[in-house]
Design a protein around this nucleic acid. Structure first.
Lengths: 153, 153
DNA sequence: TATTGTTATACTCTATAACTATA
DNA sequence: TATAGTTATAGAGTATAACAATA
């Protein structure tokens, strides 16, 4: 396995994501949210709430950092915290009604904002790309946690 | 074009990149660099130096922020600045000899660090993924700057 | 006038480590 | 003992806007 066959796809992944970020971040900021805040809103969307632990795992934000990010979202009245009934150590974070509205207000337009670029690919190409990306993601997650396949949910 | 065909690939792009970040960032930090600093080092690698403007465009770091990032790399003796001979407003940033060594020392092992995951895909799948990502990147860049094709270098 | 880069400001994110409370 | 989350700390990244020097 020569490295030449790894580098091109690694480079394209980074570049493609950067291009996506460029298109995405300015749109997110126009709603008064930072990218990590938006990430949390999207992660909480269509759920019944997630614990800090779950949120940290899904968003790649470490626990100390997460407290601050959630605090700011609470101040903005976009999320609220509740005690977990089955484990008193755990706190459940969920969107408020206002947070739900923000989710709808941002996510759908955000999709619309990004759609033209994605629409440049044929449906078959998009489908193929999504499959390959999922394949790579699974491999990356396995590499990160080689002894814990159950975490690759 | 129903949105259902856009969302899956968008989601997979984000998730796949997050998985890559998880694997990549900890490795980068183990060398005492932050991700933006690593980004600059890699961007400068194998070049004769780039202006602040070029660096900002390639790395998505805005100019005010970039000054600070470069300052820290100068303090670490990894990059140096020189005046541009053709435009006195412009400053050229390039790797020092120490920066070149850092580039070699990090980039190749970083590739090695990431390789096992990428090796899980067949060469054909990697090649296909790289092509699709490039295709999407072009579309994203065109969407961001619909009237300036020349910037899509 | 427009552009390149600096500076000042204010805030957010970030990792880390020590800590509290619960399991 | 281990885990969930908080707090304190120090540093880095971030956008923005006003600014200087040059084109």
């Amino acid at each position: 396995m020569p490295k030449e066959t790894v580098l091109p796809v690694l480079r394209e992944l980074v570049r493609c994501y950067q291009a996506f970020e460029r298109l995405s971040a300015s749109n997110i900021r126009s709603f008064g949210l930072t990218p990590p805040q938006f990430d949390i809103i999207v992660t909480l969307g269509n759920t019944q709430g997630l614990s800090f632990k779950e949120l940290g795992e899904r968003s790649l934000i470490t626990k100390g950092t997460l407290t601050g990010v959630i605090d700011r979202l609470v101040e903005k009245r976009l999320v609220q915290c509740a005690l977990c009934r089955t484990d008193a150590r755990s706190k459940i974070v969920r969107l408020t009604a206002s947070g739900e509205r923000m989710f709808e207000k941002i996510f759908v337009p955000h999709l619309e904002h990004c759609r033209p670029a994605f629409a440049a690919l044929t449906p078959a190409a998009r489908s193929q790309l999504a499959s390959r990306l999922a394949e790579l993601r699974n491999a990356l997650e396995s590499a990160a946690q080689p002894c814990d396949e159950s975490a690759v949910a």
